[in-house]
Every structure is written in structure tokens, then in C-alpha cells.
């Protein structure tokens, strides 16, 4: 029996795009839900930055330096 490949292709298209988009839409809903739950029940303690592995003390110092360096770079960039 001859199957029409093009019709098969369109079936793939609908099934594939449908699955991908539904998967991601559900994921978006879950991400929003997760954010609400986490912000409400498990808020981050203020003032602690989240990069794992670095000790908070040196991090704060470094952050200031980095911010200074970045702002200098932006200033320079916008002037150019």
C-alpha cells in the first residue's frame, strides 16, 4: 500500500510542534508557580548572594570591584 509521505509529514509536524509547545507552555506555568511558592514559603535571606562555592565575605568585596569595573567599561563604551 502506498502511503502519502506528505500527509505523514504533516502529521509529524502537528504532533511534533504540538508536543514541543505544550511541553514548554506547561513548563512556563510550572516555572511561574514554582516562583510564587518559593518566594512565599522559602524566601532568600537578604544580602547573601547566590553563587555557590564562593565564600560570602570575599564575594561582597569582589562584587564592589566588579561593579566598578563594569560601570567604567559601560561609560567607556557609551562614549566611544
Amino acid at each position: 500500500m502506498e502511503t502519502n509521505l506528505v500527509i505523514e509529514g504533516f502529521k509529524f509536524l502537528i504532533l511534533g510542534m504540538g508536543t514541543v509547545l505544550i511541553f514548554l507552555v506547561v513548563l512556563i506555568l510550572l516555572m511561574n508557580l514554582q516562583r510564587k511558592i518559593i518566594e512565599r514559603f522559602f524566601p532568600e535571606p537578604q544580602g547573601i548572594s547566590e553563587a555557590p562555592g564562593a565564600t560570602p565575605g570575599t564575594q561582597a568585596k569582589d562584587t564592589k570591584k566588579i561593579v566598578a569595573a563594569i560601570s567604567a567599561a559601560i561609560m567607556h563604551h557609551n562614549k566611544a
Binding site: L5, V6, L13, G16, L21, L24, V25
Partner: peptide
């Protein structure tokens, strides 16, 4: 999160080409 939709839409490249490839093979 909503930018995830863009990552989904771009997969049209896969399935659109699939239709094109089988259409060219068929006709």
C-alpha cells in the same frame, strides 16, 4: 519564563523541513 515559547517555536525548523523533505521526495 515566557521566553521559553521562542525556543519552542524555533523547532518549527525541524518539522517544517521534514514536510518539505518528504514532499520533495514524493513529487
Amino acid at each position: 519564563p515566557k521566553t521559553a515559547l521562542l525556543g519552542g517555536a524555533a523547532q518549527f525548523g525541524i518539522f517544517g523541513t521534514l514536510v518539505g523533505a518528504v514532499a520533495l521526495s514524493e513529487y
